[in-house]
Amino acid sequence: MSDIGIELDYIMGRYNYWLFCILMMTGLYITVSRGNLIKKIVGLNIFQTAVFMLYISMGKVIGGTAPILTEVPETIYSNPLPHVLILTAIVVGIATTAVALALVVRIRESYGTIEEDEILELEHDMDFGSGAAQGDPVA
């Protein structure tokens, strides 16, 4: 009974890491497995969010409040540094997403599709020049 209790504690006490793992893997999996360029970006965002969570939960001090100065000297604060870092990371993430989306727009304009397999097919045709590209969407 007690053994199981410890294990449960061990698992439950680190639930933020478990969530991080699950989110990270989900995001990474979507990025790798989806053929739709937009969905890939969504996966990438989930993946990044997982990391944000890892950092934020890392900064939490048990019993600590938000790191805003109070008058009470014995207040325990959570670590503010990870918050700051993640603010920066979020900005970076948004910038990445913006560039990625812009690229997708351009890809859609010139290829006429945002499905990876169709793009690969088009590129294959460009390489090996199969004269009758079946259903060339641009044309």
Binding site: T31, Q48, T96, V99, L103, I107
Partner: peptide, 17 residues
Amino acid sequence: NKRALTAAYNYLIMGTV
């Protein structure tokens, strides 16, 4: 060459990961 777009996109995904 429009393939620069997909090249950049793939670079972006892998680079960000």
